[in-house]
Nucleic acid binder design. Structure first.
Lengths: 150, 150
DNA sequence: GCTTAATTGTTGTATTAACAACTATTGTTA
DNA sequence: TAACAATAGTTGTTAATACAACAATTAAGC
C-alpha cells in the first residue's frame, strides 16, 4: 500500500521528506516482521544478527568491537547481547591471552545449528520481499547507499 | 558508503536480502540522526511525529487510536507518548462527552510554536537527504511502497 | 432489559535502548 | 620507569519498547 494510506497522510512537504518517512516506516515494518518470525526460535533480530556475524567468521573468533562495527543497529550494547547468547549456549567467550583487555567471541555448534534451522525457513521468510524484482532491489540498494552519502 | 563497507560484509545471499538489511541499516541510521537533531528541543523522534500528526488536524482533535494508526512506529505506546507531551504542555487531553471511552487529543499553542522552531531548522536537517535527486527519491518511494506489497 | 460482544484506552512487567561513567590493561614518551 | 594517554569492555541508570492483561464504556442480539 502507498505510504499515504499506511499512515493516512495525504501529502508531504517534499519527495525527499516522504522518502525519509518511508524508510523509517518500512524499516520499522521489516524489523517487526523479523521479530515475529524469529520469536519461535526465541531470539531477537539483534541476537540473530550477531549470530550471523559470528558465523561469517567461523571458526575464527571476533572481539566485541568487531561485532559492534558489523552490527546493523550500532546502538544496542554488544556486551549484553553476547551475554544473552552465551546464556543460551549459542556463543563462547574467552579472554584473549595476548591482549587481556580483549574478549574473543565465537559461535558454538549449537549456535550454528540454530542458524541452520532458521535458514531452512528462509524461503518462507523471504516471500515478504518478493514483491519487488531483482532489478528493483538493486536500484533500491544503489539509492540507499547514495543517500547515506560519503 | 556502500553497505558492504558500512557493516564489513563482502557479500550477501541475494540482492533481496541485501535490500532488507540496507533498509534496516538506513532506517536505524536515519532514526539516530533524527534523535540527535531533536535532542536540543528535548523531544524524541516519536514525540515529534505525534506532534506533527496533531498539527496536521489542528484545530481538530484526534482520538488515541487515530494517532496510533498514523504513527511511523506502531509499536510505541500512544497513551504514554501523549502523556509525556502533556506534561510538557505540548498537547491537551479531553475525555469525549459523546463517547466517554474515547480521549480527544489536540496540539496546544506551545506545541505549534515548538514545531515552528524546528521547521526553521528544517533546511539544515534536510541536507542529509540531499545526496539523492528528486527523481531518485520518487523511485525510492515507489520501490518501498511496492515492497510492502498489498 | 439483560447478557454478551466490541470498542477504546490504561496499566503492569520484563526486556531493550541510549548514553555516560567507570575499570582494567596496554602503549607512549619524557 | 613513572606518568599519562589510548584501547577494550563493563556497568549503572533512565527511559522506551514489546506485549499481554485489565478496566470502562458502548453497541447488539435475544
Amino acid at each position: 500500500m502507498a505510504l499515504e494510506q499506511e499512515i493516512k497522510q495525504e501529502k508531504f512537504a517534499s519527495e525527499h521528506q516522504k522518502a525519509a518517512i518511508n524508510i523509517l516506516f518500512t524499516g520499522s515494518w521489516l524489523h517487526t516482521s523479523n521479530a515475529v518470525f524469529l520469536k519461535k526460535y526465541e531470539i531477537t533480530p539483534e541476537q540473530f544478527n550477531v549470530l550471523r556475524i559470528l558465523r561469517g567468521q567461523h571458526p575464527k573468533a571476533l572481539m566485541l568491537a568487531d561485532i559492534t562495527c558489523r552490527m546493523i543497529d550500532k546502538s544496542s550494547n554488544a556486551t549484553r547481547l553476547v551475554e544473552k547468547l552465551r546464556q543460551k549456549g549459542m556463543v563462547k567467550r574467552e579472554i584473549c591471552e595476548n591482549n587481556r583487555r580483549q574478549v574473543d567471541i565465537s559461535i558454538t555448534d549449537k549456535g550454528i545449528s540454530l542458524l541452520k534451522k532458521i535458514d531452512a525457513d528462509g524461503p518462507a521468510w523471504m516471500e515478504t520481499l518478493k514483491n519487488i524484482s531483482k532489478a528493483e532491489a538493486q536500484e533500491l540498494n544503489r539509492i540507499l547507499d547514495k543517500l547515506r552519502g560519503s
